[in-house]
Write a protein that binds this DNA or RNA. Sequence first.
DNA 1: GCGATCAGCT
DNA 2: CACAGCTGATCGC
Length: 469
Amino acid sequence: MEEEQEDDISLSENLDENGFPFLPSSSPQPEQTNDKPIDTIEESFSSEFYRGGTDWSGLLGNEKKKKKLKQANLFQLWGFKKPQEEESTLITRVSSLPAKAEEEKKQVVASSSGFGGRKPKGRDNQRRVCPFYKKIPGTPFTVDAFRYGGVEGCSAYFLSHFHYDHYGGLSKGWSHGPIYCTPLTARLVKMCLSVNPSFVYPMEFDTEHAIEGVKVTMLEANHCPGAALIHFRFQDGRCFLHTGDFRACKLMQTHPLLTNQRVSTLYLDTTYCNPKYKFPPKEDVLSFVVKVTRTSLKRQPKTLIVVGAYSIGKECVYLSISKALGVKIYANASRRRILQSYDWPELSDNLCSNGQDSPLHVLPISSLRHETLKQYLETYTPQYTAILAFRPTGWTYSETTGNHLDLIKPAIKGNSTIYGVPYSEHSSFLELREFVQFLKPDKIIPTVNVGNAATRDKMQSCFRQWLKS
DNA sequence: GCGATCAGCT
DNA sequence: CACAGCTGATCGC
């Protein structure tokens, strides 16, 4: 019933005001000494959290035209373009986004009686409070916090990317405040969730926007299309970075906003913050997938190739096969609609709407089971007689395989073959470490796997280790 | 009947 | 495990 309650903060000895152990930082940065603690947003900063269950979020945006330039940068990050000249064109166009859609009442205190309707048996109402790690202290900002109704004191809701566990709670009826996100995410939010466009504020990558007196910039997160790291620069010069979900890479270490000024507090995607998570660079996995595909087709030319994917993300897996084999990509109508909204010509120009027209299909990852695949294959008899499927996920790790892709053993059942491949859109443990050691933040707030006290402790120990010197 | 949410399941 | 959902049931309107 209330097992999480007892997990409640024991503000014992060496925990900071957020319930986390102190970091050994040369300059123990005073948490509350911001320009001006705007409101009550931080008062219950940690106390709310440990009731808060796991990580949720959401956000979106809206816009009219998309810039080719920024997208090109994105594709480059994804391994389809040489890291040319690092795009130092940081357009510091401090445009002040109007804080419209604001006559909304901030009444809903998101608690006992508010939204969420339902009177479930249990502690559900209690659970629907925005956890502290989604709030940016000293500001009226939250990140990926939509499933709590209106968050008290929040007048700007940021959405890091368009994945359900981050935008959850966003829907047609959203009216709790303006939503800031990248243009691509904005399109998806409006298109897929029917959020009222007047609440959606797209922010181009690498463009500084002044919001409520804070300078905010979206940086490419190397996660899914439209995903952003969110960089906040306060009037006193201090900087926070919220990674949303991201896969750290070298290119990030060259971004002007991260090299020229120090990030004091880092909100970190700690999905794979454990040394057991090792996986190769994306490019290696893409090569492997192409190689396996070629080999299979040579052996059995009538093989249907399937790549599993969620709504957004992993596009490069099937795009790689498409390019290597010179075949189109079949996806159903709803997926095509989403893929076509990316403004990614290489992808949208290679889609097809008839399964017979290509041996390369994209399916929901949930359908990657022998049973289901065989049924699917039968609908293409006699055109195809075998099926080869790839399930791209970071969880496909193994102590033995690690970085050795050739050790991956597929699951085979009759004419159905399924490869789990370690194509991750989150940082590996080592990538996380390198990123943190590059940034050297004073303080790190994990945003994933925080529901368990032991895991939290282990992560903080990790950070201490990484940053000691 | 429809949209939103939730427990349970991957 | 928990990635990022999906499914089916339930609730409010």
